[in-house]
């Protein structure tokens, strides 16, 4: 028997461990230690052609909008989190989201974008901007369940899926950046599903309202997702699979 066996922890010990700053610190140290702004130090990669570069810039600009939404929302959620575990976890998520925004901005600069802020405004997907506005309304309204659902289930699951798909076709430099981001997203989407799952077990009457929020947000997120896939040139036959992980999470939570 191993000295450390996660499956032998009692439930409270497990939750305390995985929500802790200590766990987060040693986890990210495992995959970010040898990287600078998400890139492996010393690695060099060939330049992209003009069309691929332009498509990638549009995609990264919209990733920046999604990450900014998650950064602002997760920091806003700390004050309304229902327990200390969640507050501590969200503090780690804030740092993750700030790093994601930073590495995507840095990648835009690598691609020759001199003023990322104005480029983001020009290339912003209106559905994603509308999603961000709605998410921030939910946070400002201190609506914990709906905001965690919108951010950590809807947005994070879609980002996780989109980033992984993009990684499989991306140029090596972008793939390096996405690799570190995807590893963070696993924690974020898991936090959302498990926190909401526990709350819905205790308060099943909340399920109907969250299902309504889901229907409202689905259109915005799925439209964004489709347009990002278009800009990346992803083939249509693969898109159903990409959406299935999101739908699996929705089904597990009983929000169909």
């Amino acid at each position: 028997m191993s000295e450390f066996n996660p499956h032998s922890l009692d439930e409270d010990e497990f939750l305390e461990e995985v929500h802790s700053v200590d766990f987060w610190f040693h986890a990210v140290d495992g995959y970010l230690r040898d990287r600078t702004y998400g890139r492996i130090e010393g690695a060099s990669h060939p330049d992209l052609d003009d069309t691929d570069r332009d498509n990638l810039i549009t995609t990264l600009c919209n990733y920046c909008i999604g990450e900014t939404a998650a950064l602002e929302a997760s920091s806003g959620l700390i004050s309304i989190a229902p327990n200390r575990h969640s507050k501590i976890f969200l503090a780690t998520q804030v740092v993750d989201e700030a790093r994601h925004l930073e590495v995507f901005l840095r990648r835009l600069r690598d691609l020759g974008v001199e003023d990322p802020e104005s480029e983001i405004s020009v290339r912003a997907n209106p559905h994603l901007v509308a999603f961000k506005d709605r998410l921030m309304e939910l946070v400002a309204g201190h609506d914990w369940d709906a905001a965690v659902f919108a951010q950590n289930v809807v947005l994070e699951t879609m980002e996780y899926t989109a980033f992984r798909a993009h990684m499989s076709t991306a140029d090596p430099a972008t793939a390096e950046v996405l690799d570190g981001v995807v590893k963070d997203e696993r924690r974020h989407l898991g936090f959302g599903e498990n926190d909401l799952g526990r709350r819905l077990m205790a308060m099943p009457e909340k399920r109907q309202r969250l299902a309504e929020i889901r229907r409202e947000l689905d259109n915005l997120v799925l439209a964004t997702f489709e347009e990002v896939q278009d800009s990346l040139g992803a083939d249509r036959s693969r898109r159903v699979d990409l959406g299935s992980e999101y739908l699996d999470a929705i089904e597990r939570l009983g929000l169909t």
């Binding site: 499956h7 995985v18 898991g190």
Partner: peptide, 28 residues
């Protein structure tokens, strides 16, 4: 793991009723 698709490993052969934790996505 049905949530994050990581492979979870145990020191013993798995049987129905076993409880596992997925630390990467915090799932029980």
């Amino acid at each position: 793991c049905p949530v994050c698709k990581v492979v979870i490993r145990s020191v013993k052969e798995l049987r129905p009723g076993d409880r596992l934790y997925c630390m990467p996505c915090m799932s029980r």
